[in-house]
């Protein structure tokens, strides 16, 4: 399983891994019931420590995206789409608030902020 991780990314590795898997699940690349690689196998594949992948899986389990069955392995959970969506909406809202705060603090104009936002939307959603 390929998950993009980078040492230059300021976010902790385990978060990068859990986010990577989460993305795969939400995009439907991994379906409920699908088996995930074992914690140790994933650590070997990504060349990270076992503790790192273990923590990534725990995070995903807490978000109810996967279930870990001792002795059997980990599987994508029958997650509630609405719950996941509202969870990520809440997170996005919070992050946006932080961005706006930062803009205010540094004196960036509302207009410029909007322009940046639309430009990014344009780039990211272009052709979809």
């Amino acid at each position: 399983m390929f998950i993009p991780i980078s040492n230059n990314n300021p976010r902790p590795l385990y978060e990068q891994i859990s986010e990577g898997i989460k993305t795969k699940i939400l995009r439907g690349e991994l379906m409920p019931g699908d088996a995930l690689p074992s914690i140790r196998q994933l650590a070997q594949d990504l060349k990270t420590s076992v503790i790192t992948t273990k923590r990534a899986y725990f995070e995903l389990e807490q978000q109810k995206l996967i279930v870990m069955r001792p002795g059997k392995g980990s599987f994508v959970a029958d997650y509630d789409v609405d719950e996941i969506t509202s969870l990520s909406l809440r997170k996005i809202q919070q992050q946006m608030r932080e961005i706006v705060d930062e803009a205010k603090r540094t004196g960036v104009l509302r207009e410029d902020l909007e322009n940046i936002f639309y430009k990014i939307l344009e780039e990211e959603y272009c052709g979809r």
């Binding site: 902790p12 385990y14 650590a43 990270t48 420590s49 503790i51 790192t52 923590r55």
Partner: peptide
Amino acid sequence: IEKIADYVTLIDNGKIIFSEEKDKILN
């Protein structure tokens, strides 16, 4: 060690400075 170790122990001048989970230190 940064890549694959789960725990890191640092020794200096014959003494252990720390012996911890690597992720805890790096994060």
